[in-house]
Structures are given as structure tokens and as C-alpha cells.
Design a protein around this nucleic acid. Structure first.
Lengths: 184, 184
DNA sequence: GAGGATACGGAACGCACGCCCCGGTTGGCA
DNA sequence: TGCCAACCGGGGCGTGCGTTCCGTATCCTC
């Protein structure tokens, strides 16, 4: 169970192409979300589609490879907030962070909702922050973690449908206000 | 420019099939949204795909034909509310109505956002209610009609991703609360 | 009831996509 | 330097969709 043996070391060109594919995938997914055609990633990387599939068994695996580091950062940030701040500040601060992330990268909402270990880690982190904020009375009791994921996915997707720059901030402000328990 | 001449009267079987297609489309779109395959509509109507296309030039035209009556009803309801109630009641009551509509029919969110005359009529009606509610101080000033459409589409779509029955009500409650100006 | 216009059905087409395969090329080791 | 395994590219396959075509069945008129 130690280091997953990656077999014989990759040839130099293979390693180079793998990096190019990852970089292109980062860019294309950020611009167009998970729905972006894989051929476009291959084209931007200057390789054929076959090369992409030699390095990543499926499109989804490539997406996970690209998102893993970013999601891990977000999850770590969520945990840190949970430790360092009061529940309300931690929860709402993290939502704001997500909003900023989405402003720049279109695939963030996909990364949250994708099935698999990444999505679950993200959802667990959100659930932790949500539960604490609810116990502290800062968020409506009846909201579930699944509700939060659903609404975030919907909101963050909607925020990208056109190019109005302030939109995601406004939508997030509505969500933030709506989650508080004191509102009618 | 009077009545759009519909040419020679349809043959009896053609008229019957046209009704069957419309009825099947109503059901299938309501269950699966606009993304439903057209073949399924044809199969449920007991006709071939070609027959659908003889009556409606594109899938989108069929969707509009199906949605037209319902959207017109919604728009009329919105206008009536604007006349009969105070701005806040009219606005929030209409949102609740939309929520109920979406609970039962999956294609409502598509109908709101679809380009073309239907979507615009819907958006105009929403804009009217929104503007009045804002003038009455019942809704945040900075929210635009486009924001509202975006958030509704996102929310209503998200509400259908799984089968949790109370979800759309909870999400709508969050939206309603978040739109009010007095919330933080 | 016969003839012709009209409508039918479903096979066929074009397209976009994820994914696989194979002939040619390249890099690393002796 | 020469060889062989590893790797590359892009054409090709399967799928699912919207749309079109055409031989056949149906309806209406006389």
C-alpha cells in the first residue's frame, strides 16, 4: 500500500506530453467546464487524442487529475477555517472563497458535484462547516448538505451562463443572506 | 396579415396525429425536460419521427408549441398579481407559484430560459414584478432581472437532479429570504 | 370504386462525442 | 551507431442525437 508503483519510468517525450496534456486540460476545463470536448484538449496540447488516452484512461480520470490539487487545497482550507474561526465565519468565509474560485474557473462547480473521491471530499468538508454553523445557530436548521451542494452547483453554473462580471458575487450574496435563520 | 393561413385543411389522420404528438410531447418534456430524445416522443405518440417533423419544423418549435399555453398562463398570472396585490406579495407569490409548477414539471426551467418569444415574455413578466417589488423596498436593489432568471434556472434545475421531495421548497425558501433587502 | 394528393413510418444521414487501434516514429541502451 | 521497445498521431468505431428522404399506406374527391 506504499507508493503506487508507476511501473518503469516514463520516457522523456512521454513525460513531456503528459505535462502538456495536463496543462491544456487545466486551461480548457477552466474555460469550458467538464463538457469541453476532449479533442480540444488534445489539440491545445499539440498531441493526438490517442496520446491523451494513453496517459489517462477516461476523460473523467483526466478531469480528476486536473482537479485533485485544487480540490485538496479547498478542502484543506475548509478544515483550517473550521479550526481557526467561529462556525459562522468559517462557513460563510468558505462560501465566499468558492465564489472567488468560480469567478475565474468554470470547472469548479463540476468538481464539486462530480462523483468519486474528489466530490465526496468536497461535500464532506462542506457538510462539516455547515453542521457547525447550524449548531451555532448561524444557518437554517432544515438545510441539508445535499441541498447546499445542489444550490451551489446551480448557482455557480448559472453565474457562468453569460459574462456579467458582478453576477456571481450578487448571487452569492443572495445565497448567503438566504441561508441565515433569522430571515423570514 | 390576418389569421396566418394554415393552407388547405389537414387530413383527418394528420389532425389526429398532430394532437397525439402534442400530448406525448407534453408528457415527455414534463418528465425529462427539453433534453428528452425526440424519438421517445414519437414512440409514445405511436408515430414515426418523420411525422413529428412534418408537423413541427424543429424540436425547439415543438417545445414552444407545448410550452406556449402554459407560459402564457404563467405570464397572465404574473400580470394579474401585479395588478391585484401589493408589490411584495405579488413578487414572492409568483415565485412560489413557479416553485409549485417546477415540482410537477421538469421542463418549466427550460421554458423560462429558452430563447425566443416565450422566454422573453416570461422574463418581461418577472422583470415587471421584480421592479415593482424593488421600488417598494421589498427586494434588494442591486438584483437584476437577468440575475433572477439565472438563479431561477440554476435552482430549478438543481432541484430536479435527485428525487428529494422537499428540496425545491427549501431552495426556494432560501432564495426568497436572500432576496429581501433587510438581510445582512 | 378509382385515382391522385396527402400523410405515414422508419431507415438513412450528418454530426459530435468518447474511446480504441495500428502503422510509423522516436528515444534510450548497448 | 544501431536496435527494439515505448510512444505517437489521427483515422476509425460505436453511440446517441436531430433531421431528412422516399417507398408505401391512407384518406378524400368524383
Amino acid at each position: 500500500m506504499g507508493a503506487a508503483d508507476s511501473g518503469p519510468p516514463l520516457r522523456a517525450d512521454a513525460r513531456r506530453n503528459r505535462e502538456r496534456v495536463l496543462q491544456a486540460a487545466r486551461e480548457v476545463f477552466a474555460e469550458s467546464g467538464f463538457a469541453a470536448p476532449l479533442d480540444e484538449i488534445a489539440a491545445r496540447a499539440g498531441v493526438g487524442a490517442g496520446t491523451v488516452y494513453r496517459h489517462f484512461p477516461t476523460k473523467e480520470a483526466l478531469f480528476e487529475a486536473v482537479s485533485a490539487a485544487r480540490v485538496a487545497d479547498l478542502v484543506a482550507d475548509a478544515r483550517r477555517r473550521a479550526d481557526e474561526h467561529d462556525p459562522a465565519t468559517a462557513f460563510f468565509g468558505f462560501l465566499a472563497l468558492l465564489g472567488a474560485e468560480v469567478e475565474a474557473k468554470r470547472d469548479t462547480s463540476d468538481a464539486i458535484a462530480v462523483p468519486g473521491p474528489l466530490g465526496e471530499a468536497m461535500q464532506d468538508a462542506l457538510a462539516l462547516l455547515l453542521t457547525r454553523a447550524q449548531q451555532a445557530g448561524a444557518v437554517r436548521q432544515e438545510v441539508t448538505a445535499a441541498d447546499l451542494v445542489a444550490i451551489l452547483k446551480g448557482l455557480l453554473t448559472a453565474a457562468h451562463e453569460d459574462t456579467d462580471p458582478g453576477r456571481s458575487a450578487r448571487l452569492l450574496a443572495i445565497l448567503t443572506a438566504g441561508l441565515r435563520p433569522d430571515a423570514l
